[in-house]
Amino acid sequence: MARDLASAQEFYGAVLGWEFRPTRLGEQFSVAMYEGVPVAGIGALALRLGVPVAWTPYFAVDDADVTAARIRERGATTAVGPLAFGTGRAALAADPDGAVFGFWQGEVIPDWTLRGDGAAAWIELRTRDAFAAAVFYGEVLDWACERPGCCDVSYEQGHVIVRRGHDTVARISGGAVEAAPDPEVRPRWHVHFSVLDLEKAVETATGSGGAAVSPVQSSATSRSITLRDPDGALFTVVSPNT
């Protein structure tokens, strides 16, 4: 959710090398493309809906009203919607620990999904209790159900892993602190985008009005850092550790 579509496109195009195409959702929406693969969407709706500028994962559902009812039944909040948008209906919600997510009922833009064959993004929920969060999202979104096409959920090395078929689509990690002043520490969904050169991405972001808000984190396979765009949206860039 952005305030100004053109400004957001200019920033993310420079930092992440994205190109943009219009969608059937209207002139205030665009799909970000990286090497021909749809990787994200930007909608200039933050002011209209009265919500902060932020990156938010959206989950496809069969019935938005049923999903909203499940969320409320489990002590969580539906903040916006479900509202009609273009080819479907969308809503924003917050889980019991305050992490914001969206859900979508209707026609999905072709190929606009997180995939294992070249998708440049992945999502991670950092929350207070990973197991409790997995139960909540499983019940709300029909994860680990018996129907074909449902996501599988497993617990691996201290994290909850969500897979659809052979593709890992999300990870849930525990240990976040609800009252922490730092938004990096509070429960929230973290959206990660791949870059080839981490230092170049940071330099471009800071030179374009953004800021680095975390130190560089390194693992055996990758390096990452969390950035803030000029309007305050947090996102993480990840590069291979060579």
Rank of each mutant, 00 (worst) to 15 (best):
R171C: 10
R188C: 08
V177W: 05
A180G: 02
P187M: 02
A179F: 08
I161C: 11
R164V: 08
A179V: 09
E184S: 14
A179Q: 13
A176T: 08
G165T: 04
G165I: 08
P181K: 02
E184V: 11
C151G: 14
R163I: 00
I172A: 06
V177I: 12
E156C: 01
V177C: 03
Y155N: 14
A179I: 11
E184L: 15
G158Y: 00
C151L: 13
G165D: 08
S173V: 10
I172T: 08
S173L: 10
E184P: 00
G174A: 13
D182A: 02
I172H: 06
T168N: 03
C151V: 11
V169R: 05
Q157E: 15
P181D: 07
V185W: 04
E184I: 12
H166P: 12
P183T: 01
D167M: 01
T168P: 02
P187D: 02
E184W: 09
S173I: 05
D152C: 02
R164D: 07
A176Q: 03
R188S: 06
T168H: 04
V169I: 11
V185N: 08
I172K: 01
I172V: 11
D182R: 03
D167R: 07
C151W: 12
V169E: 07
V169T: 06
A179H: 11
S173P: 06
A180Y: 02
D167V: 09
Y155R: 15
A176E: 06
G158T: 04
I172Y: 10
R188L: 09
V153T: 11
P181L: 01
G158L: 11
E156V: 05
R171F: 04
R188Y: 06
H159N: 15
R171Y: 05
G174W: 04
I172G: 07
P187R: 00
V153Y: 01
E156H: 14
S154M: 07
V185K: 01
R186A: 04
H159C: 14
A180R: 02
R186H: 00
E184T: 13
V153R: 10
V162H: 02
Y155W: 15
P183R: 07
R163Y: 01
A170H: 08
G174H: 06
S154E: 14
I161Q: 08
V153P: 03
R163T: 08
R171K: 13
E184H: 14
V162C: 07
A179D: 14
V177H: 03
A180S: 13
A179W: 13
R164E: 13
E178I: 12
V169G: 07
A180E: 05
E178G: 01
D152A: 08
I161T: 10
S154I: 01
R164C: 09
E184C: 15
R186M: 00
A180F: 06
P187G: 02
R186S: 00
V169L: 10
G174V: 13
P183D: 00
Y155F: 15
A179Y: 11
H159M: 15
I172F: 13
S154A: 11
D167S: 13
A170M: 02
D167I: 04
G174Y: 11
V160L: 08
V169C: 05
T168L: 09
T168W: 05
